[in-house]
Design a binder for these strands. Sequence first.
DNA 1: GGTAACAATGCGTGATCCAGAGCTGGTGTC
DNA 2: GACACCAGCTCTGGATCACGCATTGTTACC
Lengths: 361, 361
Amino acid sequence: MSGPPVNTTVTRARELAEAVPPENTGPRPRPTIRNVAERAGVSKSLVSLVLRGSPHVSEHRRQAVLQAARELGYRPNAVARSLVEGRTHLVGALVADLHNPFYAQCLDGLQESLHGDGLRLLIGNSQWDPAFEDEAVEAFLELRVDGLVLLGIAPTSDTLIEATGYTPTVVVGERDIELGSVDVVVDDDQLGARLAVDHLVEFGHRRIAHIEGARSSSGRFRCEGYLVAMRRHALAPYIMVEQSECTEEGGAAAAHNLLTRDPRPTAIFAANDAVAIGVLSAAAELGLRVPDDLSVVGYDNTHLAGTQPISLTTIDQPRRAMGRSAAALLSDRIGDPGKSSRLRQVTPQLVARRSTGPARP
Amino acid sequence: MSGPPVNTTVTRARELAEAVPPENTGPRPRPTIRNVAERAGVSKSLVSLVLRGSPHVSEHRRQAVLQAARELGYRPNAVARSLVEGRTHLVGALVADLHNPFYAQCLDGLQESLHGDGLRLLIGNSQWDPAFEDEAVEAFLELRVDGLVLLGIAPTSDTLIEATGYTPTVVVGERDIELGSVDVVVDDDQLGARLAVDHLVEFGHRRIAHIEGARSSSGRFRCEGYLVAMRRHALAPYIMVEQSECTEEGGAAAAHNLLTRDPRPTAIFAANDAVAIGVLSAAAELGLRVPDDLSVVGYDNTHLAGTQPISLTTIDQPRRAMGRSAAALLSDRIGDPGKSSRLRQVTPQLVARRSTGPARP
DNA sequence: GGTAACAATGCGTGATCCAGAGCTGGTGTC
DNA sequence: GACACCAGCTCTGGATCACGCATTGTTACC
């Protein structure tokens, strides 16, 4: 070697970035395991042994290899490694809607846990478009991901069903998956609905309406839970259900329908936070004060619900925990595919804020 | 062939998924190009030609190959392909905070455009942790992504700087990047700040305060724009600046400081929407009505700002456009690395909502 | 001479690319 | 008219990519 080998690591990056003239020819070719071997004066297999932490290597050579790798800025090529290993250590997560903070937080939990298992997370978002779903999954399959996580997406299309046959898969937030080899993580929507109704009943409400989220299995379960809870409190005569899209606008429209009835409900349990915020808007428009004239409960405890001006009472799903559960199931299934399907149900909790209060007759 | 070749595609997926017994041995081995070649009675090279759309293939063989591929459910192995092609067609996006809807929408624009260039998007989120940043970039480099997009992250660590030397890189939402080979996409923060001040001045406000977002280059630029605009309106004597973290809590605290001064400002221009929402909370706590007693302007036009109960006047950055710009720059740089650095500045717009109104002395 | 302890060689992974083989039909030469 | 030659198209085999692993090879020490 020519130069002094002192403390090369820290300053190397900057050197590398600045050594190239402005009109450079682009990225240098990356060093391979061969270059490292050459520089260290050993065979490429030995480099592999060192980098994979084999104990059967002399300290002297190990140091030589490590230093050569450092000096060259060597990074093993995951592509080549995957090819020969037959697995990529990648997990593809397909998200129905990246903007929904609910999924974002699930992803946090997922990433956190997968990281511990040496798996990396790729994220694709379908933006609720089945064509994008298929395309994204197709991409994941071509990339040969080791596992698949579907967030808010049920495997109903042929492409997705086929994918579950090829790749270990976990579904988060959707129920009624009939495939034998797919695990499912959901929260107990029925319990969540019961918590909401109980909370309102404790405040003395009786005319408690529900806005059901259309086209989602959890929407159905929440509605089911609402009905059961209302009957349990002997409030069956006061049951009122309105359907709505899971959006602010949908919620506002549905709430308008409910609040212009006579007698109008004194409390509304909405399918999720977005819908609940729509309810708040409708109430404001009708001159109803929250919580004095109307109590509102949402579902999901999204970031929105926590902001001071909104301060929405809502049902919190332990999202990170759901992500972690999904990761655990997936790692397990990757290790031993061909297990039969499992269902993990996590427990939701009520978060009381300022949108609920005592009923005033 | 044995069975009738009718409509195999549609039903195949379901067959595949259901043909396996519950206690199966896990995913079947995936068919390779060799299997397809064998089944079609041609060489593997020809299969490659067909699948890559070469014109120099007879229609007869082409059909045979395509059918064999279909029957086997063949999907090219992106790993092997990347290895030999020397590029992965992957772009790694590193996001400071996936929960921030601002970045989520940038990603939409990015994905949209990259898709058109045959590039796929991998998303990593650093959760504001520099260690995660380095790790995620390390992962991207090992995966040999063709390009890198940094959203809200400036390449300051050695790992990141080194990465920009190896891989075409575009930075979104951070300024002051001194690296010669990195493109930058930002909005014109100074103009945005001017729009906010002008809007408030039109409403007759003079005591307009600013809450500056700490530790971010755009925070500095927005503050700069505020100062310039105030001076231009001859309102230099009324300049009031308070520093704050870019969070709701930080905004509330800073607003509290401002609003307990005497005389207090009649309008506050906040560094971003989260801070502005903190301002709304603080105002509510102090019994100040918005916009009657206090006008508030945010920045970013996040989803929060648009919800009815909040209805925040704010500066909209064309996020999708920023994403698209970033994609264009990146594709360009991937095609021709070694270009010198470019800066794209997009134009923000004011979105007037109910948090601003006429000044009342 | 036997046995550790290590180093070097070579094969396999799935796809692409390149050089070239086989075939066909057309052209030129004797 | 017979033969060689050529161009162009279609198709094939082998080299290649970077790495991991199993096998073989080489010391050195007892």
